[in-house]
């Protein structure tokens, strides 16, 4: 077990190291000078040079990589070129929006999708199943920014129940903060729920045709018991895989929804940092996200073991 953990840790470190090199190299190759971008087209060459010096961009590539990675190891993620505040502070400010939003969307999509998937699988071939499948197809096909705009026009512009966008901060109280996250969470959750319910349904149907289900039925267990106790648990493996992927996406891939709701989330931070060539922010956040994805995958692996005891011994 210890050997397993060590090997795992070693692999994780290698992955992170490679990711950090790739991210750093890619961003250095991308054309664009952060100093020139900051000072614009009327700036004189010596003003740009002075700013490059201030930003530390005059040092050679390798030196900058090692000082960045060295800082990261000691918990110092560097300072943003544009905002000139510690990167960690920026990330923390965005995390308090992105993390609750991702969790909210995930909870919402799971609570919708799993019952719908089970419902649909249990009534396979009926018109109810066909209806659900059609609805989920639509849910996948609808662009989420468009759906988000519909939500805004309905609930913010017409009924004025919630703000059209923005985030007042948690200091403003739980109510206003949550109110500003409700629409984005719904807009994010629905397409995810559509995918998840289809995966749940097909996973369940696969399991339902297994021999052990037939055995369970043959020994006279009621259909519901077979479904809930034997089939569902085994069908959860692909569902968990999708959930893990979706969480990583929800954390940083929600840039479009963040734009529609002008939320100060992690996705917009990265996007803005890329366009402003705030390299240190992009590099640090991307490596943090890589780390998050690795951790989430690890948790999903553990959850596999919970769902399917056979996997624990491997």
């Amino acid at each position: 077990m210890l050997f397993y953990a060590l090997r795992r840790l070693f692999l994780v470190s290698i992955t992170l190291l490679v990711a950090s090199i790739v991210v750093f190299a890619v961003l250095e190759i991308v054309p664009g000078d952060p100093a020139r971008l900051m000072l614009g087209i009327n700036a004189t060459e010596d003003a740009v040079a002075a700013l490059r010096l201030q930003m530390g961009l005059d040092k050679p590539l390798v030196t900058r990589y090692f000082s960045w990675i060295g800082g990261m190891l000691t918990g110092d993620f560097g300072r943003s070129y544009t905002y000139s505040v510690p990167v960690m502070e920026l990330v923390r400010e965005r995390m308090v929006v992105s993390l609750p939003l991702a969790l909210l969307a995930l909870i919402l999509s799971t609570t919708i999708a799993i019952p719908v998937g089970i419902f649909s699988a249990a009534r396979r071939g009926t018109s109810a199943d066909a209806g659900v499948m059609a609805a989920t197809q639509v849910g996948i096909a609808i662009p989420n920014f468009w759906f988000a705009l519909l939500l805004v026009y309905l609930f913010a512009v017409t009924f004025r129940l919630v703000p059209a966008g923005g985030f007042p901060g948690w200091d403003a109280g739980l109510g206003p903060a949550l109110a500003s996250l409700v629409l984005p969470a719904i807009a994010l959750a629905l397409p995810q729920a559509a995918i998840l319910s289809r995966v749940t349904r097909s996973a369940l149907l696969d399991v339902m045709s297994e021999d052990y289900i037939r055995t369970a039925r043959a020994k006279g267990l009621p259909a519901n018991t077979v479904l809930w106790r034997h089939a569902l648990r085994n069908a959860l493996i692909p569902v968990l895989t999708i959930l893990g992927l979706q969480f990583a996406f929800l954390l940083a891939g929600t840039i479009i929804i963040e734009n529609v709701f002008y939320l100060p989330g992690l996705g917009r931070l990265v996007f803005q940092a890329i366009t402003q060539r705030d390299l240190i922010v992009v590099e640090s956040v991307v490596v943090l996200l890589v780390a998050t994805v690795i951790v989430v995958n690890f948790l999903v692996d553990l959850a596999y073991g919970w769902a399917d005891p056979r996997l624990r011994t491997r």
């Binding site: 700036a43 004189t44 003003a47 002075a50």
Partner: peptide, 8 residues
């Protein structure tokens, strides 16, 4: 000399 004014 070391000014970073964008409109020097």
């Amino acid at each position: 000399e070391d000014s970073t004014n964008a409109q020097k």
